[in-house]
Design a protein around this nucleic acid. Structure first.
Length: 195
DNA sequence: ACTAAGATTACCT
DNA sequence: GGTAATCTTAGTA
C-alpha cells in the first residue's frame, strides 16, 4: 500500500562484523525527510571500514577525535564526516558498542524525491552515484552525525533482497593504505554504482 | 606553530 | 589527464 511506513532495518543485523553488514546493506533503503521532503534510494554500493587493524579506516587511530567518535559507539547510528573539507559522506555504524567500525554508503539507485534531488544537486548528474553526491541529494550534513537511523529525518529501512549472484566484491576506492583488501560491495549493473 | 594528506567532486585543457 | 576547493587530523618542531 502506498504511504504505508516502511519497516525499520532489523537492528540486530547491524551489530555484526563490518564486512558482513556492508553486504547486508545492499538492497536496503536509505530514507531522508530532511527539510520536510521525502528523498530515498536503494543502497547498491558500500565499503566496510574496520577498527585498528584497518589502516584506511578513520577508526585506525588510537585516539578518538571529534570526527571519528561515533564510529566507536553503538551500531545503527549515522557517521557523517566531511571529505576533503568539501563534501559530506554518510556511513552506517556497525559492530558492537565500543568497537570502531562503519559502512560507507557509496551508491544509491534513486527511489523517491528525484525532483528534490535534482534541485539539491543543481542539475548535476549523476544524482546519487558516489558518497558525496548521494549525501547532497538526500540533504545529509554534519548535523546528522550521531543520529540514530531508526527515526526521522534519516532512516535505514527494509528494502529488496539482493542474491549473492548479483553481488561483486572489489578493493575499496580512493584510499592509499590497505588498498588490496576486498571490502567494497556492489550490486552488478545498477546505475547507482559510482564506477 | 607549521605542513602534508585525505573514505571526493567538478571543472579545466 | 590535471587541479582547485576547504577542513580535520596527524606528524614534525
Amino acid at each position: 500500500m502506498p504511504g504505508e511506513p516502511r519497516r525499520a532495518f532489523p537492528a540486530d543485523r547491524l551489530a555484526r562484523v563490518v564486512p558482513e553488514v556492508a553486504r547486508l546493506l545492499l538492497g536496503a533503503v536509505l530514507e531522508s525527510t530532511v527539510g520536510g521532503v521525502l528523498t530515498s534510494g536503494v543502497i547498491v554500493e558500500t565499503e566496510a571500514y574496520l577498527g585498528p587493524e584497518d589502516a584506511a579506516s578513520h577508526a585506525a587511530t588510537r585516539s578518538i577525535t571529534e570526527r571519528n567518535r561515533v564510529m566507536f559507539g553503538p551500531p545503527g547510528v549515522a557517521y557523517v564526516y566531511r571529505s576533503y573539507g568539501v563534501h559530506w559522506c554518510t556511513n552506517v555504524v556497525a559492530d558492537s558498542d565500543g568497537v570502531g567500525g562503519a559502512v560507507l554508503i557509496r551508491g544509491l539507485d534513486p527511489l523517491e524525491g528525484v525532483e528534490t534531488m535534482r534541485t539539491r544537486r543543481e542539475g548535476r548528474l549523476p544524482l546519487t552515484a558516489g558518497p558525496g553526491r548521494l549525501s547532497q541529494a538526500l540533504g545529509i550534513t554534519g548535523e546528522l552525525d550521531g543520529h540514530g537511523l531508526d527515526r526521522a529525518p534519516l532512516r535505514l529501512v527494509h528494502g529488496v533482497a539482493v542474491p549473492d549472484e548479483a553481488v561483486t566484491t572489489t578493493p575499496r576506492i580512493g584510499i592509499t593504505r590497505a588498498v588490496e583488501a576486498p571490502l567494497r560491495y556492489l550490486v552488478r549493473g545498477r546505475p547507482g554504482v559510482s564506477r
